[in-house]
Design a protein around this nucleic acid. Structure first.
Length: 616
DNA sequence: AGGGCTGTTGGCACT
DNA sequence: TAGTGCCAACAGCCC
């Protein structure tokens, strides 16, 4: 039998250190090995993603490619611009492939994609080898050990993982790589449909990414932001495995920081440097192995002795939370990312609910505007012009840098949902998906459910103040002065509440507190007035949450799916989702919310059973 | 010297 | 991994 001709398919495992899948590929002792990346149209057109995360991905790819070339000067990361579902059947033949190897991916699109590719491989007689490597413990194993149920708490995750055993020790990187084989492209490229393009707003120029399957020069080059039509990234955070390992080294070197880390005690207001590791974007792209991170930390903890912190607050605790969300996602499936049809997510009649496809039961990516006021609040939140400087600073840092501290995320998420705007957590999750460098679907959905008190956490009366929470960490408002420069000269006395500053103080600081932030340009010597009285909204929201908890509906309840829930939330008795026409999306600025006019018929959807079909 | 006023702190219950 | 209001306890100060 001839020696294996192996494709190693890199996806979100852009590293050479501790890669069980790459190790499995090399164990085949291949005659040739092609390290490839497929430029998947799904992520280009159908999944939300801003410029910064694309740049971080390109950083990771370029670094990986350089590392591959260092091991074998004939090799690199070869990028092919086509959807893997259509590409692989052609590649298997054209390159005479015997094996396809990749790391197990976990989100719903990736699973479906990999099933399609695996079927094509079987038809072509290509052996597929898949290894788990994205998490501390394999998420499917955790679910099995947890009786098929999702892990909805740290203790349930820890008890399930205990039955599996210790986290595997990291595997060293390869010392050499085989040559790549010939790469003939004597087949037609299937070009993707560029419409609908969920990222159209981010694209400033022509999208030429799919002009040639092997890139503009036919050399399988890594894409550029220009080819995507995106403006240059604004984030200062750079990707790549080399940098990840260097940053990890620097953290581990500080034994005390590593061993005594307590998340709740790290400041969300610190930047340059921040108070946490900022390694999450590397974990997302697989440029850093989570097991490598875990054991480097755990070894320090073990030798530190008394005084070391423990999960959930310790550094390893943060990684275990990540596994908890992955295992919850593995058990619940695609509905983990939405309320509808999700029996583990409480139903709260928020404003701006997602539109749900009646055939699939899945969120379509669009939402109903049941309240013009909530829509304005949501837009101001997303833009960072709420009039609450602490919130605005964090949202502007998020947009510009693609990263904010975990407690900052708590603060803005609470504010948008149960502690201010009473807007659906899925709206917030969409915005984080667009802007975060470290956007991890499972963690994002899980954390938004946590903060909105719809799953994982239920103390809805613990409400973050947009004024005092920041003050606890940053009395002088350094974070605000950095990100909301309109206010940089305002006295510390007013920095969290500029609307309280007397006119002469505003004049002295060169800023006028006026307007709603949407109709007047920011940074022109004005700062918007707060969009509501926080104390008032806090009371309204807590009362509404109390009511929703008493009603006690979950996302899979039939009355949630067919609109019957309204009978349980009488109008005029506290905050509740307003009525909306079924086609309200286009003319949002017309009409008057809360007037009781509109579609009064319950919206019938098909049964709670949901197909595996991916949202579009 | 000691009563009384005031501002601060910490514990607690409640939302 | 909360904020608020209330109150008791207490320190510091005035007269």
């Amino acid at each position: 039998m001839s020696k294996p001709r192996v494709i190693y398919w890199f996806r979100t495992d852009l590293r050479l250190h501790d890669s069980p899948a790459l190790n499995a590929a090399l164990d085949l002792e291949p005659a040739v090995l092609w390290p490839i990346f497929t430029w998947d149209p799904h992520y280009v057109y159908r999944a939300r993603g801003g410029t910064n995360r694309w740049q971080f991905l390109l950083d990771c790819q370029n670094d990986l490619s350089d590392s591959i070339t260092k091991l074998n000067h004939k090799s690199k990361l070869f990028v092919l611009r086509e959807g893997p579902q259509t590409l692989f059947p052609k590649l298997f033949k054209a390159w005479n492939v015997t094996h396809l190897v990749f790391e197990q991916d976990t989100d719903s699109y990736a699973r479906e994609r990999d099933e399609v590719v695996a079927r094509a491989a079987k038809e072509a007689g290509v052996e597929v080898i898949i290894r788990s490597g994205r998490t501390l413990w394999d998420a499917e194993d955790v679910v099995t050990k947890h009786g098929g149920k999702p892990t909805m708490s740290m203790t349930s995750l820890l008890s399930a993982s205990k039955k599996i055993g210790d986290v595997p020790r990291p595997i060293p990187p390869p010392k050499h790589l085989p040559d790549p084989g010939e790469m003939p492209l004597d087949f037609e490229q299937d070009r993707p449909h560029a419409k609908p393009d969920i990222n159209a707003e981010s694209r400033k120029g022509n999208d030429t990414g799919y002009k040639n399957i092997a890139g503009p020069n036919g050399d399988f080059a890594i894409e550029t932001l220009g080819e995507l039509g995106f403006a240059p990234a604004t984030t200062p955070h750079k990707g790549g495995e080399t940098r990840a390992l260097k940053n990890l080294d620097a953290i581990i070197k500080d034994n005390k920081y590593t061993a005594t880390f307590e998340k709740p005690k790290t400041s969300p207001a610190l930047f340059d440097p921040q108070s946490t590791t900022l390694l999450s974007p590397f974990l997302h792209f697989g440029a850093l192995s989570v097991r490598e991170f875990y054991w480097r930390v755990q070894d320090v903890v073990n030798s530190y002795g008394k005084g070391a912190s423990t999960p959930p607050v310790s550094l390893t605790g943060q990684l275990i939370f990540r596994d908890m969300y992955f295992a919850a996602q593995a058990a619940i499936g695609v509905n983990f990312h939405q309320t509808a049809g999700n029996r583990h997510c409480r139903f709260i009649p928020w404003h701006l609910p997602s539109k749900v496809d009646p055939d699939t039961g899945l969120s379509t990516g669009e939402y109903h505007i049941d309240s013009d006021q909530a829509e304005r609040w949501f837009r101001r939140w997303k833009q960072g012009v709420t009039g609450f400087p602490w919130i605005d600073a964090l949202m502007r840092q998020l947009r510009h840098d693609g990263w904010i501290h975990h407690l900052g995320r708590h603060s803005v998420a609470c504010f948008l949902t149960r502690g201010g705007c009473y807007v659906d957590w899925e709206r917030g999750a969409d915005v984080f998906e667009e802007f975060l460098l470290d956007h991890e679907p499972a963690c994002n959905a899980g954390n938004w459910q946590w903060l909105s008190c719809t799953a994982f956490f239920s103390q809805y009366f613990r409400c973050y103040s947009p004024i005092t929470f920041g003050q606890k960490w940053d009395k002088n408002g350094a974070l605000i002065r950095k990100w909301v420069p309109e206010l940089k000269d305002l006295d510390a006395k007013y920095i969290y509440e500029p609307w309280r500053a007397p006119i002469q103080d505003q004049k002295k600081a060169g800023v006028r507190v006026t307007g709603d932030g949407l109709s007047n340009a920011i940074g022109k010597g004005t700062y918007p007035k707060p969009m509501f009285d926080f104390g008032e909204r806090r009371n309204v929201c807590i009362a509404a949450m109390k009511k929703a908890y008493e009603v006690g509906l979950y996302g899979d309840d039939e009355t949630v799916l067919n609109g019957g829930w309204r009978e349980l939330f009488p109008e005029g008795q506290g905050e509740v989702q307003g009525r909306f026409d079924s086609d309200d999306g286009e003319n949002a600025d017309e009409g008057d919310e809360d007037d009781g006019v509109g579609d009064k018929r319950p919206r019938k959807t098909s049964s709670a059973t949901v197909s595996k079909k991916q949202k579009t």
